[in-house]
Design a protein around this nucleic acid. Structure first.
Lengths: 109, 109
DNA sequence: CAACTCCATAACTCAATACTCATTCAGAAT
DNA sequence: ATTCTGAATGAGTATTGAGTTATGGAGTTG
């Protein structure tokens, strides 16, 4: 039975998609997905190619959105993914995108 | 086996999420999801509460993004959803959002 | 204490885009 | 042909948010 996209839900769904719609944020998410455990902000920044301040903002954003968790430890702050949903969506969408890419490729030759 | 979020994929995935991240567009999508068959632009505008020009733009956007299809017929233009993915994502995300809402509610009382 | 590292934040610039209004266009009907 | 309806488009406005730079704060190490 499909879930209903009720009016009050639209705001939240939109927020979630906005969080997932920014390239830099997707890179951060991928980094956190790839890493099995928590990563320091510096590690995330380096791995995703973002500058420190920018990575800081995006990580804060993801925490606010409930997608990542923040755990300070001494001097450094460790982040990790919270929602299994992220992986699920990623599989769904990535699968679709690569499928569409294949189709487009076929239709072009 | 999970799909990989490769670098070239990020751009497309981002584009898809951007298309899905705008409230008005979500309303249009919901309208098209609810309707079993194609809807004229006017019908979409009315059902989603958007003005004509705005609905026109968002529908054009969705067609460009490959999420909807456009079929002129006489004077009016009919739109329908293209990707089954939209429904799948919607189910996934809506389920999560309502679950999270329940949890929040519980933790608040 | 001083120097250093890691992170957060403020101020700013710049680009993107949602929305509205007005106009234009195409097809249909009279 | 004129009129009417449904849809697309352009101009203009306002808002939003990403990125950078620079600075400050908290913790660590010498």
């Amino acid at each position: 039975m499909p879930h209903q996209l009720t009016n009050p839900m639209i705001k939240e769904v939109s927020g979630l998609f906005i969080a997932l719609s920014e390239r830099s944020r997707l890179k951060v998410l991928r980094t956190l997905l790839d890493a099995k455990g928590p990563l320091s902000q510096g590690a995330v920044a380096k791995a995703s190619g973002l500058k420190q301040a920018n990575a800081s903002k995006h990580l804060a954003y993801l925490v606010r959105a409930g997608l990542a968790s923040r755990e300070p430890e001494g001097n450094t702050v460790y982040f990790s993914l919270v929602m299994p949903l992220v992986g699920d969506i990623c599989n769904l969408v990535c699968g679709h995108v690569s499928e569409r890419a294949r189709t487009t490729y076929k239709s072009l030759r």
